[in-house]
Measured scan of single mutants.
Amino acid sequence: MSIQHFRVALIPFFAAFCLPVFAHPETLVKVKDAEDQLGARVGYIELDLNSGKILESFRPEERFPMMSTFKVLLCGAVLSRVDAGQEQLGRRIHYSQNDLVEYSPVTEKHLTDGMTVRELCSAAITMSDNTAANLLLTTIGGPKELTAFLHNMGDHVTRLDRWEPELNEAIPNDERDTTMPAAMATTLRKLLTGELLTLASRQQLIDWMEADKVAGPLLRSALPAGWFIADKSGAGERGSRGIIAALGPDGKPSRIVVIYTTGSQATMDERNRQIAEIGASLIKHW
């Protein structure tokens, strides 16, 4: 067993022997301040990774656009098919120029040779490549099948209805392509620590998230040296922004954090800054 596999296998073990965790309302004060600064709703939840206990939450059962955070769930569904012998990570998928959609920095470079399922998941999570996500959605049967996968996990809230990039439209009061912070946090925890996926697939999923290259201005910008984070960000229309993450000190994750916002007129930089400040408060009061 590799060191990384050992780390993920012992996530519940280490967490069980940690000192009790206590909620700190100071972080919620910052979440509410972010709402004021952005002029928009902000949803927040913080779960203990081992027990699933909610440590703090704000608007945990209000719907927010998922945006690209759905790509972690998508690759979880792909990995479940791999575990069941219905898919192979090494299978190569070929596609054409007509398949390319807006923001496809990886797939646009491989029109000639195609990409493997493993490479597509890596591109979808680490670079948020939209064509990679659409190609992977095709392998599982489309958005409705991802929703069905989530329902089978016990998540009857999260739903995907459309493809990239239309799913980022974020129309107010439109339930399409949305989740709730509580539902997303619980589902992410199941994917990373539950028995739904094999140990190898859980490790692969967290490795992809740990290698995320496009979430630097968010929670990662607030992390002290030595902290662990595996995350996936999302951005959408109407001032929408979000991030889902597993993080913790001492090089291992111990909490799940989900943050979503929508309806702001603020710039992307300002949305990023507010999420980073929430992260800084979380870490300060850990």
Rank of each mutant, 00 (worst) to 15 (best):
H24L: 10
H24V: 09
T27S: 14
T27G: 04
A34W: 06
A34C: 14
E35G: 05
E35I: 04
D36C: 14
Q37M: 08
R41Y: 13
G43A: 07
G43P: 00
Y44V: 06
E46H: 14
L47M: 10
S51N: 11
K53Q: 13
I54Y: 15
E56A: 06
S57I: 07
S57N: 09
E61K: 12
R63A: 10
F70S: 11
V72G: 03
L73V: 09
L73H: 12
G76P: 00
A77T: 06
A77Y: 12
A77S: 11
V78W: 03
L79F: 04
L79A: 04
S80V: 10
R81W: 14
Q86G: 11
G90L: 10
I93T: 05
Y95Q: 02
S96V: 12
D99M: 08
L100S: 04
V101S: 08
E102N: 11
S104N: 15
P105R: 07
P105K: 12
P105V: 11
V106Y: 15
V106W: 15
V106E: 15
E108C: 15
K109Q: 11
M115Y: 04
T116F: 05
L120F: 04
A123T: 06
I125D: 01
T126W: 04
D129W: 00
T131P: 04
L137P: 01
I140V: 09
G141V: 05
A148H: 08
H151L: 10
H151M: 08
M153R: 08
M153C: 08
V157H: 14
D161P: 02
R162F: 03
W163E: 08
E169C: 14
I171F: 15
D174M: 04
D174V: 04
M180Y: 06
A182P: 08
M184I: 06
A185Q: 00
A185H: 00
T186C: 08
T187S: 10
L191G: 01
L191A: 07
L196N: 10
L196I: 11
L199N: 06
D207W: 14
E210S: 13
K213Y: 05
V214A: 08
V214M: 06
G216N: 06
G216D: 06
L218A: 03
L219N: 04
S221G: 13
A222R: 07
K232P: 00
S233T: 08
S233R: 00
G234P: 00
G236F: 02
G239Y: 02
R241C: 04
I244D: 01
A245M: 05
L247F: 05
P249S: 14
P249C: 09
P249Q: 10
D250F: 08
D250G: 06
G251P: 10
P253K: 05
V258P: 00
V258N: 01
Y260Q: 03
Y260D: 01
T261R: 04
T261K: 04
G263N: 09
S264C: 13
Q265N: 10
D269C: 14
K284V: 12
K284S: 14
H285P: 02
